[in-house]
Design a protein around this nucleic acid. Structure first.
Length: 590
RNA sequence: GGGGUCGUAGUUCAGUUGGUUAGAACGCCGGCCUGUCACGCCGGAGGUCGCGAGUUCGAGUCUCGUCGGCCCCGCCA
């Protein structure tokens, strides 16, 4: 092992080109591969920019050639040498540096490496377990570097864009207070105030509103948020948002700004030109056509309303459901080539999605093929076929149940079928605004209305009166941005008037005393001339994931957590020293 | 909290109906090799089959439990 001494790197491994031939260079990096021919030894030296071949030739430098015998995979080297052209037949077209090589005159082995637990290449993908345990090695893989580079450029692009639009990035506290509603909070005990706890923010929601009251007019922040809920491929306990808030605006301003930001990102990072404005769809329409408030509009296969058509048949499972206030909806798969088994297999799938069963009708050249065919008159069949435009080869899949169940099952079945049929164009980016959400929805478990977005969302001006009489019918000035079936972000116009905010609290069953205790600071602020304001927040991790074409957030997060919210590298979370607990006046009760 | 799936050499994986000494590739160690770039050739080491019970004459293989990774449901204003 040698010291670095006063050596200074003259270029990255990916840099050398024929133009620099003849120059003396110092390059540093990791041993990616080693080819020892006894006489001459080749080493591929790698850094984040690429790979350069360095050559140890005993005729050029005997000591360096001898020393190179000890070099192993992932050793860290510094080499000084002369850049040479390769002879025509030894040029490697697979690397940008493949026309040249560095003839080593001096080698310094800066650090050895134990045998690595998995190879640093693109061919083999190690198990997730190994990757997360040795994340620093996983990060050496070019794909991980590419993903995090993309993420960096995303953040930089967004910052530059918002700066250009007159936004200020302002930091807000991580140690804040726990609020009711929403996700479970991560709590931090206060040593100085025994028995009291901070909460890590689920989002900087209230702070950004208070910045508007503070007159900042246009705020943004690329900020970490924390939610103590179970994980998914697209959900980590800590995640990053592009958080935005503006004063004296309409939803249109948010749409225009967001569209500018997203198209900018897509153009700069992916070379894609996304047309603006993005299409918009009301929540009601989205539920009707897709059964879902975040529809993937890259493909059709929309839901069909069937209640009226089938209510007068002799199909008992249908008529019973309709009698109980349920509905019937379905999907039509055109030119369906499913085997009988494939169709039968959809039934347990639909049941897994929450359906009691899945009815089906296949249109063949001999008429209806279906377990239900005998319950429908020929006349009715013709009426149904005409109404739905059914033709030979079509498969009609139907679910009858309460509306919520029908929507849920069919929306998931739609995604399953879209994937199975291969009709989802993978390389398309289809943005969609979903608007006109209900302000609240009834929670059967809690037996009260809960905020659909959050408790600070403004009702539409014409619906304010309904807050007292029919809360379920009140529309919110809220909007979500959906990309390829993934909720990328959401926002709303907020309540800037104290009386409206108090009405909303009351509607949510938050009493005056509780509102005062939990949100007193907000209500106080609203009483001091709060401007009309609103904003939006986008998931950076999800956006980066889609831009990177990755299947999991972990691919675009340097140090992510497992499905059990554990960091396999640091072994966090961990028990702590009893002394620490005593200082915090915290007792663990398992 | 629930369901599914995976766990075999350092790594990626194979392992038949439960049957002799658990294999391959890459990596690792030793040797040879002056134009390779997935270098090649010769030789070698390396296994608590995640862990614990059970069934069996016999378990990597079957059963139960448990731990861990992944996916999903619930949950995620």
């Amino acid at each position: 092992m040698e010291l670095l001494g006063n050596w200074q790197r003259s270029c990255y491994c990916g840099d050398p080109r024929p133009a620099q031939v003849g120059q003396e260079l110092i390059v540093m990096g990791w041993v990616h591969a080693r080819r020892d021919h006894g006489g001459v030894t080749f080493i591929d030296l790698r850094d984040r920019t690429g790979i350069v071949q360095i050559v140890f030739n005993p005729q050029i430098n005997e000591p360096a050639h001898t020393a190179a015998k000890d070099i192993r995979m992932e050793y860290v080297l510094a080499v000084r040498g002369t850049l040479m052209n390769r002879s025509a037949e030894t040029i490697n077209p697979n690397f940008p540096t493949g026309a040249v090589e560095l003839q080593v005159s001096e080698l310094r082995i800066l650090n050895p490496s134990r045998t690595v637990p998995f190879p640093i290449d693109t061919e083999t993908t190690p198990t997730e377990n190994a990757r997360l345990r040795y994340r620093y090695l996983d990060l050496r893989r070019p794909q991980m570097y590419a993903n995090l580079l993309l993420r960096h450029r995303l953040a930089k692009n967004v910052r530059d864009y918002l700066d250009g639009e007159g936004f200020l990035e302002v930091e807000t506290p991580f140690l804040t207070r726990s609020t009711p509603e929403g996700a479970r909070d991560y709590l931090v005990p206060s040593r100085v105030n025994p028995g009291s706890f901070y909460a890590l923010p689920q989002s900087p929601q209230l702070f950004k509103q208070l910045l508007m009251v503070g007159g900042f007019d246009k705020y943004f922040q690329i900020v970490r948020c924390f939610r103590d809920e179970d994980l998914r491929a697209d959900r980590q306990p800590e995640f990053t948002q592009i958080d935005i808030e503006m004063s004296f605006i309409q939803p249109e301003h948010i749409f225009r700004l967001s569209e500018g930001m997203m198209t900018n990102v897509c153009r700069e990072l992916k070379g894609m030109d996304i047309p603006v404005p993005f299409p918009r769809m009301s929540y009601t329409e989205a539920m009707l056509r897709y059964g879902n408030d975040k529809p993937d509009i890259r493909f059709g296969l929309e839901l069909r309303e069937l209640t009226m058509l089938f209510r007068e048949t002799q199909i008992k499972v249908f008529t019973d459901v309709v009698a109980k206030g349920g509905i019937i909806r379905g999907l039509i798969v055109s030119n369906c080539t499913f085997s009988r088994k494939e169709i039968d297999d959809l039934n347990p799938l639909a049941q897994g999605f929450g359906a009691k069963g899945l009815a089906w009708i296949r249109i063949t050249n001999e008429g209806w093929q279906s377990p239900l065919a005998k319950f429908v008159s020929e006349e009715k069949k013709a009426e149904i076929a005409a109404a739905l435009g059914l033709k030979e080869g079509d498969l009609l899949l139907m679910v009858a149940d309460q509306e919520k169940v029908v929507c849920d099952v069919l929306s998931r079945l739609r995604l399953y079928l879209g994937d199975k049929l291969g009709i989802i164009p993978k390389d398309e980016f289809r943005f969609l605004w979903v608007t006109d959400f209900p302000l609240v929805e009834y929670d059967d478990e809690a037996k009260r209305y809960v905020a659909m977005h959050h408790p600070f969302t403004s009702p539409t001006e014409e619906d304010i009166a309904l807050l007292d009489t029919a809360p379920g019918k009140v529309h919110a000035r809220a909007y979500d941005l959906v990309l390829n079936g993934l909720e990328l972000g959401g926002g709303s116009i907020r309540n800037h008037r104290l009386d409206v905010q108090q009405k909303v609290f009351a509607c949510l069953g938050i009493g005056e005393a509780e509102a005062q205790e939990k949100f007193g600071f907000l209500m106080e602020a609203l009483s001091f001339g709060a401007p009309p304001h609103g904003g939006i927040a986008f998931g950076v991790d999800r956006l980066a994931m889609l831009l990177a074409g990755a299947e999991s957030l972990r691919e675009v997060i340097a140090f992510p957590k497992t499905a059990k919210a554990v960091c396999l590298m640091t072994q966090a979370p961990s028990p702590v020293d009893p002394k620490q607990l005593r200082e915090l006046s915290v007792k663990v009760d398992l």
